[in-house]
Nucleic acid binder design. Structure first.
Length: 110
DNA sequence: TGTGTGACGGGCG
DNA sequence: TCGCCCGCCACAC
């Protein structure tokens, strides 16, 4: 479901992330065929402010860190949203990140 | 029209 | 293992 809009593609993928699961900027970029454009995924998320149907809190960096929490209404919101889905966050990092990692390249595209 | 910048990631020394 | 550098590209000024 690739569109001609990179941002829209990013949003489409993010919306598919299951509740209680997380993915990374790089994974999304790779799924969109732009492995080296992970920065653009972050940029797209930054622009997702206006959209309220984007679970941006489920997107973290490859270390499972909540690097984008400062962009939320208030910093702790990102952690609170993740915890409300059953995840645990410690020192701005998702505990057991590997276990909850949702890879669009593996889960979709089949 | 040109330039700087950014919720990143991978490669290299 | 750690730090630095570079690619990448849409967008704001």
């Amino acid at each position: 479901m690739r569109s001609d809009n990179f941002f829209q593609d990013v949003y489409d993928v993010v919306r598919l992330i299951p509740r209680g699961r997380v993915t990374t900027y790089g994974a999304i970029a790779a799924y969109l065929g732009a492995t080296r454009s992970s920065r653009m995924v972050g940029w797209a998320m930054n622009a997702s402010h206006s959209q309220h149907d984007i679970p941006a809190h489920r997107v973290v960096n490859r270390q499972g860190m909540l690097t984008g929490k400062m962009m939320f209404a208030y910093p702790m919101q990102m952690q609170e949203l993740l915890e409300s889905e059953g995840l645990r966050v410690k020192d701005d990092r998702v505990e057991g990140f590997d276990l909850f990692f949702w890879d669009p390249v593996m889960e979709l595209n089949q």
